[in-house]
Amino acid sequence: MASNQWIFHQDMDAVQYLMASDARLAALIKEIGDYTLVLREDYFASLARAIIGQQLSVKAVETIWMRTVHLCGGQVGPESLTELTEEQLQGAGLSKAKVSYLWDLQQKILAGELCFKEICHLSDEEVVTALTRVKGIGRWTAEMFLIFSLGRSNVWAVDDVGLRRAVKWLYRLDETPTGNEMKSYGTRWSPYSSVASLYLWEAINRGLVK
């Protein structure tokens, strides 16, 4: 994996492992083919956008995010947020609760309670523990950060609605799998469950999941 990219192809060890362990997933991987995921290296912006995007449509998130970027002078960071008022952020479309979550993230960064240089060296569970100390960040958001910002290879978000839909579709299940049932798939695909997740999300993005 390049420093800021995750490049997927069938000669990749992780992909070969998944294809050998699961015939249905292998067929999906062949159908999707090669693709590249660019990691979100601006960790603060990644978490801030995740907070803003909670329970909103993709279109709404993009609109509010771009307004926030504009207010911050082009870069959303702990220092640029210091210059903004609650009224300005609410005017951009953030709820009062989400403004408080952004302030809490900002304050923990500025106080040194959350250090992005250190977080890269923590285990997956330690990252989850560190991030969920921030108001408004739950386990799912922390898991998305592990995959899309840190590029961790063995993260399986059992509560992700999209993954549950995709697993139901891939295995032609009558019912959406429960959390415990989802865990069994993560175990099957370990130590590359993140990679399996990315192929399943890509299947949704391409309209394959019905």
Rank of each mutant, 00 (worst) to 15 (best):
A111W: 03
L89N: 04
I119M: 15
L110H: 09
A48C: 06
Q55I: 03
F116S: 01
W103T: 08
E79A: 09
C115S: 14
S95M: 05
G91M: 07
E62F: 03
T63Q: 12
S95H: 04
L47H: 13
V69M: 05
K96R: 14
I109M: 13
G93M: 07
E83K: 15
H70P: 00
D104P: 01
Q88S: 12
K117D: 13
L110S: 09
A45N: 08
Q90F: 01
A60M: 06
I119F: 03
S57M: 04
K59E: 09
E87V: 09
Q107R: 12
Q54A: 00
L114Y: 08
F44D: 02
V76G: 09
L114Q: 10
F44Q: 05
S100R: 14
F44M: 10
Q54D: 01
E62H: 10
E62W: 02
V76Q: 08
S46I: 00
E118P: 01
A92C: 11
H70E: 12
T68C: 13
C72F: 10
H70T: 01
I64S: 02
G93H: 05
A48M: 09
V69T: 03
Q90S: 06
K117I: 09
Y101I: 12
L84N: 05
L94W: 08
T63A: 12
V58M: 12
Q90K: 14
A111R: 13
C115N: 15
Q75K: 12
F116H: 04
S80E: 15
Q55M: 13
T85D: 15
R67Y: 05
Y43A: 05
L81C: 05
L71G: 00
M66I: 00
V99G: 00
C72P: 04
D104C: 02
R49V: 02
G74Y: 07
A60T: 10
W103Y: 14
E86R: 15
K59N: 09
F44S: 06
G91L: 14
W65P: 09
Q88P: 12
T85H: 13
S100V: 08
L89D: 11
G112I: 09
S80L: 13
T82S: 15
A50T: 13
A50Q: 06
A50L: 04
L110F: 03
L114H: 12
V61M: 00
E87M: 10
Y43C: 04
Y101Q: 07
R49E: 11
K98S: 07
A60I: 02
E87F: 07
I109L: 15
F116R: 11
L105G: 01
L105N: 01
R67P: 06
